[in-house]
Amino acid sequence: MMNLLEKVVGDFGDKRRWLRYTARVKALPPGYRRAAQALERYLLYFGATEGDLWLSAFEDLADLFEQAAADGTPVREIVGSDPVDFAETFAANYGGAGWINKERRRLNEAIDRAEHEEGGEDS
């Protein structure tokens, strides 16, 4: 029965991992959270083919932003001057390819907003 249910709704382990990842990102300070969510959105457009591989990538992304927040590393020092290049390089390490120009613009704008929100309140 469990096998049939998982075929219909998907792997429960992966769903639990995704929920843990999203909870970690939501717990980040506002600027870091906005940046991580913007990168997540951009990376999702790369068309993940292997769920486990991409879950690992997102978990690593959460690790990166948690550590940066703990160390007080500014968002710009994480992603550099070109967030798109950062995202594409990050994705390439996990086998990701492809992008959408609109998402490049959104990512750059979100990182700019995140930079201004660092240490501030949600807007």
Rank of each mutant, 00 (worst) to 15 (best):
L19Q: 14
G47P: 02
V9H: 09
T22Y: 04
L55W: 06
D63G: 09
R20S: 11
E50T: 13
V8N: 00
R16M: 15
A62F: 02
L5N: 09
G10K: 01
F65A: 07
D63N: 14
E50A: 12
A27C: 03
D11F: 08
L4F: 11
R41K: 15
E59M: 11
E6I: 01
A62H: 01
G13M: 06
V9I: 13
F12Y: 11
Y45M: 09
L43R: 08
L39M: 07
S56D: 15
K15F: 06
Y21N: 09
L53P: 03
D60M: 10
V8K: 03
F46N: 12
W18I: 05
W18N: 05
L28W: 03
P29Q: 08
D52C: 01
P29E: 12
Y32H: 05
L61D: 01
L39V: 05
V25E: 04
E66P: 02
R34G: 00
E40Q: 08
D11V: 09
L44P: 03
R16V: 15
L28Q: 02
A48E: 14
L5T: 12
A62C: 02
L39D: 03
G51V: 14
G13L: 09
Y32G: 02
Y42F: 11
A48W: 14
A23K: 15
A35N: 06
A62R: 05
G13H: 09
Y32L: 02
D52Q: 11
K15D: 07
R33A: 05
Y21S: 00
W54D: 13
A35K: 04
G10T: 00
A38K: 01
D14K: 10
V9Q: 09
W54M: 15
L39R: 03
K7M: 12
A35R: 04
D11Y: 09
A27D: 08
E59K: 09
P29T: 12
R34F: 02
T49Y: 09
L28G: 02
V8W: 00
E66V: 04
